[in-house]
């Protein structure tokens, strides 16, 4: 009994096999439910329907996926380019913190979906407003986590750098920024999940391409299988992006896993 339990908890094989069994079980249950209660396809398609729909037009769907992917990644990268310097400035100057921080809070309190139509009015139907939406959604977690991380440097290490006559630049790059990295990554992982949501929201409103657009269109024609295919592709993209970040974190800050 105990041996079985420890296999479940500790075996690396179990760590892969068990989730797969869970996933297959869930899909089987879904399929079974559709057949057992004879649910029509426009309400709930079977896994088979979804797969078939995807293979009816794979090139088109992958193209739309690529559009959404680019918007998401561009907006996410932009949020780092904009957010990290702002966080650094906030940490550096109390005056700026007092001036800007409440504004940021206000900006964050706006429901982003409400802004989507405005973005279309201002910037049209292209990719620009989508990237901007992703930026808006990602920006806040990036700023907050970077600012927190920059403030988390232990006092003793700051004193050590001072006792070694380190310049401010050295102290910044060799100590503070390095120390902030784990917390920055925490923020980035929150942001990347939000980024996918942001691009889909933006594509719901005034778009001509992207998976968000595909899903709204499929709703209009009651093509539920197509919507499911789009949603599945979006989830896969989200998972790949998230674990890409986890992998990058593992490469850049291997020391953090044991430290916190």
């Amino acid at each position: 009994m105990t041996a079985k339990r420890s296999w479940v908890a500790h075996s690396p094989v179990a760590a892969v096999v068990l989730p797969v069994i869970g996933l297959i079980g869930a899909i089987a249950l879904w399929w079974l439910a559709v057949i057992a209660f004879s649910i029509p396809e426009y309400l709930l398609p079977t896994p088979k329907d979804v797969t078939l729909t995807f293979f009816e037009q794979p090139a088109y769907l992958l193209e739309q996926l690529w559009v959404s992917f680019l918007e998401t990644v561009e907006g996410f990268l932009l949020s780092i380019v904009v957010g990290v310097p702002i966080a650094l400035l906030i940490v550096r100057s109390v005056l700026l913190e007092r001036l800007v921080y409440p504004l940021l809070l206000m900006l964050n309190s706006i429901p982003k979906i409400a802004v989507a139509p405005l973005l279309v009015i201002w910037f049209g139907f292209g990719q620009g407003p989508k990237v901007l939406m992703v930026l808006l959604v990602c920006f806040f977690p990036v700023v907050i986590s970077t600012a927190q991380g920059m403030k988390s440097t232990p006092a003793e290490l700051v004193e050590l750098m001072r006792s070694l006559n380190a310049s401010r630049t050295q102290e910044f790059f060799k100590l503070r920024l390095r120390f902030a990295l784990p917390q920055i990554f925490t923020g980035l992982k929150v942001a990347i999940s939000l980024a996918v949501i942001g691009s889909v929201i933006a594509e719901f409103v005034g778009a001509t391409e992207g998976l968000g657009y595909v899903i709204t269109q499929s709703g209009a024609s009651a093509d539920t299988s197509l919507a499911f295919a789009g949603i599945t592709l979006l989830s896969l993209m989200s998972i790949v992006l998230f674990y890409g970040l986890v992998w990058l974190e593992h490469l850049l800050v291997p020391w953090a896993e044991e430290n916190r």
Partner: peptide, 19 residues
């Protein structure tokens, strides 16, 4: 007037950079 190169300081905690 400030920290000198020929004076070293050792702290209560190891104060090592974890990375």
């Amino acid at each position: 007037t400030g920290p000198r190169a020929d004076v070293s300081f050792m702290f209560q905690r190891p104060a090592l950079l974890p990375w």
